[in-house]
Design a protein around this nucleic acid. Structure first.
Lengths: 198, 198
DNA sequence: TTAATTCCATAGTGACTGATATGAAACTAA
DNA sequence: TTAGTTTCATATCAGTCACTATGGAATTAA
């Protein structure tokens, strides 16, 4: 069952990926439609018919970014302890933020770190995703406390906050030129703050 | 000795502070000249005569931000150990990023987290300041290792990187709505990763 | 008072912003 | 073939961007 009308002359998925990389490099508001159409290899009207507008295109790029690596999500879900899950997430972030095939740092951390009042809704959309992920890790830590895998006086909130601060901070360091192995060492050092049962 | 010509009709320092707060809230490229003139209470030609252009005004705002708190710099210089200095810096950052009288987060971390190619020089100016501060902490840790205040196998780089990742990351968390006491707990948790001599 | 200097207010500059109107081109359905 | 539908290429929209030309206003120096 083909759709009626003239077919798209470009690969929508590939164009979306190019848009994601452009936002990743240059930010949400600081990426222009011309930047996007150039990178995507299409004209402005094609962009608007295929993706709605700049905001919807960005949100779609964010979703592509978040769900790009189902393996990592799976591994985290199957990790035996919250510490293992946190380590997987930090290590994955260190790799991702310094990957040669993508811009340095984290798309979510960089692209909406600041902006005018016009893009407050976009900023809070991204913030909600981060807060959800942070809450998930916190609940995961709570489970380990219940299972007595962690001391009863463990502060799940402080631990989850710490992990996410480190991840977001690594994005800045990666943009400042810090290399992958340095970020991995940073993560290993950080894990020494993880409480142990004695 | 008064300067010849018509005098300035506004307080240059107060106007600069207003500009700093506006950049802090909205970012470098995503703050318009109109945003600035409105906040500063002056007209565009006055801004350009007094500060040069947008880029110079921003750099001046960054310097005001960095050197605003000489007390903290002094306390850090006089701290007995690198750990104390790191703690002072982290605690000060947690306070600053959640101060009710200023926008949330860190001006340096937020305002140039991303941007178009046109502002690459501004981004790297800020990155250089961060890298200098990180190197300073690293050297401070090296001194403690020499004085045998820290184990000989301490990784000064990993420790300094960790502290700065946490600080930059706290800026994102503060923007996401995390409160001051949570950030302080986060810092305390992080310090447990600091090596001890036994 | 006059000249020189500097700043302010108004009103704009060209270039770029996100987004679209228009009509031709390419496809499906009847 | 014809009608209906969707996309494409061109050209362009009003609005905003950083920035400034112009002339009057306010000051110091001579």
């Amino acid at each position: 069952m083909k759709k009626v009308g003239r077919p798209l002359s470009f690969d929508r998925d590939k164009a979306l990926k190019k848009a994601m990389l452009t936002f990743w490099q240059s930010g949400y508001e600081t990426t222009s439609i011309t930047d996007l159409t150039t990178a995507m290899g299409i004209t402005a009207p094609s962009l608007y018919t295929a993706f709605g507008d700049k905001k919807q295109l960005f949100l779609e790029a964010i979703r592509l970014y978040v769900y790009a690596d189902p393996d990592v999500i799976n591994q985290m879900d199957n990790a035996p302890t919250a510490k293992d899950a946190a380590w997987l997430l930090m290590q994955h972030s260190a790799d991702l933020f310094t990957n040669e095939n993508t811009p340095p740092g984290c798309l979510m951390a960089s692209s909406t770190a600041s902006g005018s009042a016009n893009s407050e809704d976009v900023r809070s959309y991204v913030a909600d995703i981060r807060n959800d992920m942070r809450l998930n890790l916190k609940l995961r830590i709570d489970q380990d406390i219940e299972k007595v895998l962690l001391p009863s006086d463990t502060s799940a909130d402080a631990l989850a906050d710490l992990v996410f601060a480190i991840i977001q901070g690594m994005s800045v360091l990666a943009r400042d030129g810090v290399k992958q192995n340095s970020l991995i060492l940073l993560c290993k050092q950080a894990l020494k703050a993880w409480p142990e049962n004695h």
